[in-house]
């Protein structure tokens, strides 16, 4: 059976590249466990963050503080944190990838949130917040000058310029 070269290659790109973006408002975004989920910094309290998510398929959404208090801005419609999450996810991953993951048919206006008709639902915040803390903890891992030969499998792939 003839195989495509991609399947017979060792150093191929599997994860599509992410685009750089400003991180101040939404420091963390991921597409994981069937959700677009992330952490949004509070506009008023530097020490507070919101955990927001949209579920793929149902498009149900949720938003609460990291201490599991429901977001005051959340009603039958996504709050500003959820809008910010969606906007930044589109910047980071591109509209196509986010829409495909959430299984949303986005119209020509490119409005991702507007194209979703889910309702408010309880979403797990603790797991997302702990993923975020883990994410941040990478910045505290010291560098190394030991050779890392396994990085030969992970070349920095060129961005399209």
């Amino acid at each position: 059976m003839e195989k495509a070269p991609w399947e017979r290659s060792s150093a191929v790109r599997v994860v599509p590249p992410v685009q750089p973006r400003k991180l101040a408002k939404v420091p963390f975004v991921e597409l994981a466990d069937g959700r677009l989920r992330g952490v949004v910094s509070s506009g008023s309290d530097m020490a507070r963050v919101y955990v927001s998510s949209f579920e793929a398929g149902s498009h149900d959404f949720g938003c609460s503080t990291n201490n599991n208090r429901p977001c005051g801005g959340l009603s039958g419609y996504p709050c500003k944190h959820l809008h910010a999450l969606a906007d930044e996810a589109v910047k980071q991953y591109g509209l196509d990838r986010v829409a495909r993951y959430l299984r949303v048919e986005v119209g020509e206006d490119g409005d991702l949130v507007g194209a979703m008709g889910g309702s408010r639902a309880k979403a797990p915040a603790a797991a997302v917040f702990s993923r975020f803390l883990r994410h941040l903890s990478y910045l505290e891992v010291p560098g190394t000058a030991e050779p890392l030969p396994e990085m030969d499998w992970f070349p920095a792939f060129g961005a399209v310029r």
Binding site: P17, V18, P20, R21, L23, Q92, H135, L136, Y138, L139, V141, P142, G143, T144, A145, E146, P147, L148, M151, A156, A159
Partner: peptide, 25 residues
């Protein structure tokens, strides 16, 4: 010879910004 220097990072640190992580060298 080869010499490798490495740093931990997150996915949103990419492009020319990665050099900022290697300031120990």
């Amino acid at each position: 010879v080869r010499a490798g220097v490495a740093a931990a990072k997150v996915d949103t640190i990419t492009g020319p910004a990665v050099w900022n992580l290697l300031g120990d060298h």
